[in-house]
């Protein structure tokens, strides 16, 4: 027998008893295993009923987010050696309804994402269909939004956000960051379209600048800064429309 490490994994099966339980698994410890590798080992060798979501194994798809010892992490890029020889607790992402075991329901996030219109909007709708037209950008123009393009919709920021936990109506970090990303794109003309969502009661103003979204973001998108910049834009617009009477 080589070295072993213990995983405490949250189990939940609505078809069985609908209760949250914690199951302990002792697995071989391998220095180069990620937590996702360990979960795959559990599923293949110990308990085929364990349910979790994953795909790419390389921090690109954003599927394998879970709470690892209470912190939202991508399990594919979190390694056992960070915790060994201590036990590791793996739970489904906080602030989301659980479907089964470690799989959460992110429909709320998907609906909010769509509401922020994270795509390029042109005032002339024909521009959007005309694929022959080129829109040149300078490096400086791209630099304004590039950081936010790195978002992989893994929803770790939602699991970390205490405001989202308290107010489920809050638009949340990633959606605002992606709205900001298109607002800052020189090819985009949809700022006003997004404003009613981003600057709404449930938009940027709900954020209390806790900053945990930025802490946990595996792609360094810095949603917190994006939210604050959107606040500045929205406040300037608010003063402007207040003074001019324009909606």
């Amino acid at each position: 027998m080589g070295e072993e490490i213990t995983l405490n994994i949250t189990r939940y099966n609505p078809d069985k008893d609908g209760k949250y339980t914690t199951q302990r698994y002792s697995i071989p410890y391998k220095n180069d295993w990620s937590i996702l590798d360990a979960l795959n080992y559990v599923k293949a060798e110990l308990d085929g009923s364990l349910t979790y979501r994953w795909s790419c194994r390389m921090a690109v798809c954003g599927s394998c987010g879970m709470m690892v010892n209470g912190t939202p992490r991508l399990t594919c890029s979190t390694y056992l050696n960070e915790f060994y020889p201590k036990e590791i607790t793996i739970e489904p992402l906080a602030n989301f309804p659980v479907i089964r075991d470690l799989v959460v329901d992110i429909n709320d996030f998907m609906a909010k994402l769509k509401s922020a219109k994270p795509w390029i909007i042109r005032k002339n709708k024909r521009d959007e269909d005309d694929t022959s037209k080129e829109y040149l950008q300078t490096t400086g123009q791209m630099d304004k939004y590039y950081q936010q393009t790195l978002c992989i919709n893994c929803t770790l920021c939602y699991a970390a956000c205490p405001v989202y936990g308290l107010h489920p109506d809050f638009l949340g970090p990633a959606v605002i960051a992606l709205g900001h990303r298109y607002n800052k794109d020189s090819r985009d003309e949809g700022k006003a379209d997004r404003r009613e969502v981003l600057a709404s009661e449930h938009g940027v103003w709900k954020c209390t600048v806790v900053g945990d979204c930025t802490e946990v973001c595996p792609k360094h998108v810095d949603p917190s800064a994006a939210i604050q910049r959107t606040k500045v834009d929205s406040a300037i617009n608010w003063f402007f429309s207040f003074l001019t009477g324009r909606k």
Binding site: A199, E201, W205, K231, V232, S234, A235, W238, F239
Partner: peptide, 14 residues
């Protein structure tokens, strides 16, 4: 009062 949130936030920031 809540509708004035941009005002409160601007004063907060300043």
């Amino acid at each position: 009062i809540n509708a004035l949130e941009p005002l409160w936030w601007s004063l907060f920031g300043a």
